[in-house]
């Protein structure tokens, strides 16, 4: 337990942030361990950007405490910015500088910077080395921003919606880059409202809804804790597509001990059945051993982070 606490690089405790009468963060608490990718997941307007901006000292908390690497970001700016790099959501660069000029500029701000040439090759910007920032594609700009975030050799990278506005190929490319940073030992804190991004990148995440953390854990833990229901889908061939046949099939399944949410949808040459259950293995066994069913085309659809997110959001 002591070790786990000592390994924490970020401690946020009962953080509140208000703009006038509007309370954006309502007492959130979380921690981040060294070397992990931690995600703040939430819908638009949940307070993710405010949380990250307060975390990195761009905004002062209304109440509560934020400690990063033992520093108070809003107070210890110089020491903090040497060790923590940030890619804000609404970030921009000098549009008329080239990629190399931009990296050399940002490298000059840090005491132990990386070589801009190595950043250019690591982030796949060789072809754009002499290109002015305003002529870069969205994906190239994001990669350059990540390159800038990594050029000071930071211990922690904070990325606010890093793949916002990118096409699927550019997003995957960006995810590879972020995963490489994790492999190199950096702690990454990111915000996102995209479930696939959170599932792929995050070791742990907190779901932020209307300024409150409604759930926290690894994606697997969250799915296990918050959404136990899976769907077993299969096909019953050679059944009539009439409503009576569907009712007969449902009754047949109930007699076999399969209860709960059973839906039967008539198709051209049979019935498509879906059973919502907390015990998909048991349902599969019962179907397989029920004589006369002749079920085919089995599929088990497990809950996703999106289901958890929707459940948590609806319940908040």
């Amino acid at each position: 337990m002591m070790g786990a606490t000592a390994d924490r690089v970020v401690e946020v405790d009962r953080l509140r942030k208000s703009y006038g009468d509007h309370e954006v963060l309502r007492g959130i608490s979380f921690h981040v361990r060294r070397g992990e990718v931690f995600g703040l997941l939430g819908p638009n307007g949940a307070g993710k950007t405010t949380a990250l901006e307060t975390l990195v000292g761009l905004r002062r908390p209304t109440s509560g405490t934020v400690e990063v690497l033992g520093l108070v970001p809003a107070r210890d700016r110089r020491a903090f910015t040497e060790r923590v790099s940030v890619q804000p959501q609404a970030a921009a660069l000098f549009p008329t500088l080239t990629v190399f000029e931009t990296l050399r500029l940002f490298a000059s701000f840090y005491s132990g910077p990386r070589d801009p040439e190595s950043v250019i090759s690591e982030f796949g910007l060789e072809a754009a080395r002499r290109t002015r920032v305003k002529h870069l594609s969205g994906g190239q700009q994001r990669r350059l921003l990540l390159g800038i975030a990594s050029i000071g050799n930071p211990e922690i990278l904070v990325l606010d919606e890093p793949s916002a506005g990118l096409d699927p190929a550019s997003r995957r490319n960006l995810w590879d880059v972020i995963e490489r940073q994790r492999e190199l030992g950096a702690t990454v804190i990111l915000s996102t409202h995209q479930m696939d991004e959170a599932t792929r990148l995050c070791d742990r995440l907190a779901i932020l809804v209307a300024g409150r953390i409604e759930a926290e854990g690894s994606p697997e833990e969250l799915i296990r804790e918050h959404s136990r229901v899976s769907t077993v889908a299969f096909f019953l061939p050679e059944r009539s597509s009439s409503g009576d046949a569907a009712a007969v099939a449902v009754a047949e399944l109930e007699r076999a001990g399969i209860t709960g949410g059973i839906t039967a949808s008539p198709e051209r040459d049979g019935l498509r059945i879906a059973v919502e259950t907390e015990d998909p293995d048991g349902v599969l066994r019962r179907i397989a051993f029920t004589p006369g069913l002749h079920a085919t085309g089995f599929r088990v659809i497990r809950s996703s982070l999106e289901d958890v997110f929707l459940e948590v959001s609806d319940g908040a």
Binding site: V56, L58, R77, R78, T81, E82, S85, V86, P88, A90, A91, A92, L93, F94, F106, F109, Y110, L145, I148, G152
Partner: peptide, 17 residues
């Protein structure tokens, strides 16, 4: 304009005062 675009915000997250 640089403040509106977010360029100053980006520089504000570095050690530059």
């Amino acid at each position: 304009t640089q403040r509106e675009d977010g360029l100053l915000r980006q520089i504000g997250t570095t050690p530059v005062g």
